[in-house]
């Protein structure tokens, strides 16, 4: 399917990513995503039989730490960057979810 994205396919991906794209962007990304994945076709042809995936190169993790209560972010500070927060109530606010 690489090299051949339709507008509808791009729109479906955009919906998954919560990105509202305009018509010009749908066309642009249909072409560019196809081009980029075509360039990745060589990777798909590599024989990886029995090869485990590498998600992280960490060889060892930092040791566990005690689970102690420590100070956390002050509520006013946590809300300070929020658009349209209800500061007095100490709440983030979002547009209506349920009709």
């Amino acid at each position: 399917m690489a090299a051949g994205f339709t507008r509808e396919q791009v729109a479906a991906i955009a919906a998954l990513a919560h990105l509202e794209l305009d018509g010009a962007e749908l066309d642009l990304f249909a072409r560019q995503l196809g081009d980029i994945l075509t360039a990745a076709e060589d990777v798909r042809r590599v024989d990886t039989t029995g090869v485990p995936p590498t998600a992280s190169v960490l060889t060892r993790h930092a040791s566990d730490r005690p689970d102690e209560v420590r100070p956390c972010l002050d509520r006013d500070e946590a809300l300070a960057n929020a658009p349209d927060a209800a500061l007095d109530a100490g709440l983030f606010k979002v547009p209506r979810v349920i009709g």
Binding site: V10, I13, L33, L37, R44, T48, V51
Partner: peptide
């Protein structure tokens, strides 16, 4: 967009998992 696509159902193995295997190589 690209990242969402390569992680999406049906394409994860073909792209993301494959890339992680070649990362091992």
């Amino acid at each position: 967009m690209l990242g969402t696509y390569v992680l999406s159902a049906g394409y994860y193995d073909a792209y993301y998992l494959k890339a992680q295997q070649v990362r091992t190589l």
